[in-house]
Structures are given as C-alpha cells and as structure tokens.
Simulated scan of single mutants.
Amino acid sequence: MPAPSAKPLILVVEDAPDNQVLIEQVFQDSGYAVNCVQDGVSALAWLAEQLPDLILLDLSLPKVDGWEVARRLKADQRTAAIPIVAVTAHAMKGDKETAIAAGCDDYLTKPLDIEQLEICVKRWLVERSDRDLDR
C-alpha cells in the first residue's frame, strides 16, 4: 500500500518532456502530487523506493518499455495493487487489449484529451480510496 501522504501521489512515466509538462500542469492545482521519470529503468528504480497511488505509463519508453514495466509491477506483490493507466500513442485495433493483458488497468490515447485524463485519474484515485476505506 502506498505511504500515507497529504496528497495522492501520481507517478508519470513518460519520455517526452512536453507530455510530462502537460500532465504536471493539469494536476498542479488539483490536490495531487506528481513525480515524473523518463524511462522504464528509472520507473522501476523509483518504485523500489516509493509507492504512488497511481501510475500514468507511456508504453513506448527507452531502456525498458512500458509493456514490460506493467508486467513486472503486476507480478510484484508490493506493487500489484497500484492502478496503472497506459498513456500511449498505440491506438491501433487490439492495442488496448494488449495493454490490459500486460497489466494496465486503464488506457488513454495520445494526444491526450485533458478532460478524459482528469476523469480517469479522479476515478482511479477515488475508487482506490473507497476500496481502502472498506478494509
């Protein structure tokens, strides 16, 4: 379970600086804390030290791609319950199903629809809070 914090923590795993900045701007005044890393290796290293409440994961990453990051996180008991939202340009038929099969819990395509991103993040963080309260 993620460490308690004043704000829910979102890990953004994204190699495009413009997308990192966009996501940070969307959530800067929203009551969420955002941390960005640029590749799969950095994401796995960061996750060895901290546990976010939600992961926004690009699938086309250098070093270790997002598909493999998702598989590893869902196979690890420590990180398996963290919701992963694929944020990707992979928008061909079957890509969503492949992302879900790799361990992603949800799927958004690029270019990002800001309203859909906000709805998705809120849904996962509210659902997670509700599940935690039920324990």
Results as ranks from 00 to 15, higher is better:
residue 2 P to E: 08
residue 2 P to A: 15
residue 2 P to T: 10
residue 4 P to K: 14
residue 5 S to L: 00
residue 5 S to M: 02
residue 6 A to T: 10
residue 8 P to D: 03
residue 8 P to Q: 01
residue 10 I to M: 01
residue 12 V to W: 07
residue 13 V to I: 15
residue 14 E to K: 11
residue 14 E to H: 12
residue 14 E to R: 11
residue 15 D to T: 05
residue 16 A to E: 15
residue 20 Q to L: 07
residue 21 V to E: 15
residue 21 V to C: 06
residue 22 L to D: 07
residue 23 I to T: 10
residue 23 I to W: 05
residue 23 I to V: 15
residue 25 Q to L: 11
residue 27 F to L: 01
residue 29 D to L: 07
residue 30 S to V: 00
residue 34 V to W: 14
residue 36 C to P: 06
residue 37 V to S: 12
residue 37 V to R: 12
residue 37 V to L: 12
residue 39 D to W: 01
residue 39 D to R: 02
residue 42 S to E: 15
residue 42 S to P: 00
residue 42 S to T: 05
residue 44 L to T: 03
residue 47 L to A: 08
residue 47 L to I: 10
residue 48 A to F: 01
residue 48 A to K: 11
residue 49 E to N: 12
residue 51 L to A: 10
residue 51 L to K: 13
residue 53 D to C: 13
residue 53 D to P: 14
residue 53 D to H: 15
residue 54 L to I: 12
residue 54 L to R: 13
residue 56 L to R: 06
residue 56 L to G: 05
residue 58 D to E: 01
residue 61 L to A: 07
residue 62 P to S: 00
residue 62 P to N: 02
residue 64 V to Y: 04
residue 65 D to F: 05
residue 66 G to Y: 06
residue 66 G to W: 07
residue 67 W to T: 04
residue 69 V to M: 07
residue 69 V to I: 07
residue 72 R to Q: 15
residue 73 L to I: 02
residue 73 L to S: 10
residue 75 A to C: 11
residue 75 A to L: 14
residue 76 D to Y: 06
residue 77 Q to E: 15
residue 81 A to W: 03
residue 82 I to G: 05
residue 84 I to D: 00
residue 84 I to S: 00
residue 86 A to R: 08
residue 87 V to W: 15
residue 88 T to P: 10
residue 89 A to P: 00
residue 89 A to Y: 08
residue 89 A to L: 10
residue 92 M to V: 03
residue 93 K to E: 07
residue 99 A to F: 04
residue 99 A to D: 01
residue 101 A to Q: 12
residue 102 A to F: 09
residue 105 D to T: 14
residue 106 D to H: 14
residue 108 L to R: 09
residue 115 E to Y: 04
residue 115 E to L: 07
residue 116 Q to T: 03
residue 117 L to E: 09
residue 118 E to C: 09
residue 118 E to H: 02
residue 118 E to T: 09
residue 119 I to F: 12
residue 121 V to W: 00
residue 121 V to E: 02
residue 122 K to S: 13
residue 122 K to C: 05
residue 123 R to S: 10
residue 123 R to I: 03
residue 124 W to L: 08
residue 125 L to H: 06
residue 125 L to A: 08
residue 127 E to T: 09
residue 128 R to M: 06
residue 129 S to Q: 12
residue 130 D to G: 00
residue 130 D to N: 09
residue 131 R to F: 07
residue 132 D to T: 04
residue 132 D to I: 09
residue 132 D to N: 05
residue 132 D to S: 05
residue 133 L to I: 04
residue 133 L to N: 11
